[in-house]
């Protein structure tokens, strides 16, 4: 039985397999519409979500499976003080696979120790979000066509941005990668990512607080939202929330083949005027999430078309 807690739980070769399956699903959806018949996905979302939960549910329904679960902690036994260990011990008897989101970092790892079915980390606090990374990788493959020799700018909240951490982990396994880290000093990349996946691997990187200065050298600009829910102090959030806003003026400094990704939801960090720019890939990116999650569910349930 396999779990996906961290994107590195999947090898580069396995990610290629998932992308190949996702591409085939997009080309031949009817071929896959019953491969998970009589299988149940439990979505245990202890923290609100729109895209991730719905794309997981859509993925399972598109495979012919069923879905059960909850979408916030207040509607689960967590509100009564139940531990993750107990919740998962019970739910793993009701479902064949579990996708779990939790505000506390490491919660899915705890769940995996108590589950008799595969656990997928659907986001744990400001730590990791491996299925968003699979979505990002499928997007990069479709929009740019390669994973090697890329200069990737990460902009905004790099401290709590779990999608940033997982994507840096994943991209650190490819050749010719350069990271450009654009954030206010308070929201810099945490040491577990910077030391383990950039410095220790000898990957080239630049840290800056000016988006304009680096726009022209980027192949990908990965924008992130400053997440209100990660701050214990609202003053800090209010001070930092408008640190970087991507506008048409800044897009004018970028190359014609650059792509803008964003895990969404967006608040105001990308001006809506940028949406019409063909380089804005974030809504296409959100659509890819469903297909790569279908491929992942199939892999973990060990089913094929």
């Amino acid at each position: 039985m396999r779990n996906v807690i961290d994107v590195l739980d999947l090898s580069v070769e396995e990610i290629e397999e998932l992308i190949a399956v996702a591409d085939d699903i997009m080309a031949n959806p009817t071929k896959y519409q019953e491969v998970c018949k009589h299988k149940i996905l439990a979505t245990l979302f202890f923290e609100p979500s729109t895209r991730t939960r719905l794309s997981f549910e859509s993925a399972m329904l598109s495979l012919g499976g069923e879905v059960l679960g909850f979408s916030e902690a207040s509607s689960s036994s967590a509100a009564k003080g139940e531990s993750i260990a107990d919740t998962v011990s019970v739910v793993s008897g009701y479902a064949d696979i579990i996708a779990m989101r939790h505000p506390k970092e490491g919660a899915p790892l705890v769940a995996s120790a108590h589950s008799c079915v595969p656990i997928i980390n659907a986001g744990d606090g400001g730590h990791y979000h491996p299925t968003q990374t699979l979505t990002d990788l499928l997007t990069i493959r479709h929009e740019i066509g390669r994973f090697d020799d890329l200069t990737i700018g990460f902009c905004g909240d790099l401290k709590f941005g779990r999608t940033v951490h997982s994507l840096i982990e994943a991209m650190s396994r490819y050749k010719g990668i350069k990271f450009v880290l654009i954030s206010p000093p308070e929201l810099k990349l945490p040491s577990f990512v910077k030391e383990e996946f950039i410095k220790n691997k000898g990957i080239e990187y630049v840290q800056t607080s000016s988006l304009e200065e680096v726009m022209g050298e980027l192949d990908i600009l990965y924008m992130t939202r400053v997440q209100k829910e990660r701050f214990f102090n609202e003053e800090d959030y209010l001070r930092l929330k408008d640190s970087f806003v991507l506008t048409e003026d800044k897009m004018a400094l970028a190359r014609a083949d650059m792509r803008v990704l964003h895990p969404l939801p967006r608040v105001n960090e990308i001006d809506t005027a940028v949406d019409n720019d063909p380089r804005a890939s974030y809504f296409r990116q959100a659509h890819y999430g469903r297909y790569i999650r279908m491929a992942l569910i199939m892999k973990l349930l060990e089913v094929s078309a």
Binding site: S83, I84, A85, H102, P103, K104, E105, G106, A107, L109, V110, D124, G125, G126, R230, F232
Partner: peptide, 11 residues
Amino acid sequence: PRCITSVEPGL
């Protein structure tokens, strides 16, 4: 304070 060890009993 964001770590699961801060809330999960017996961990």
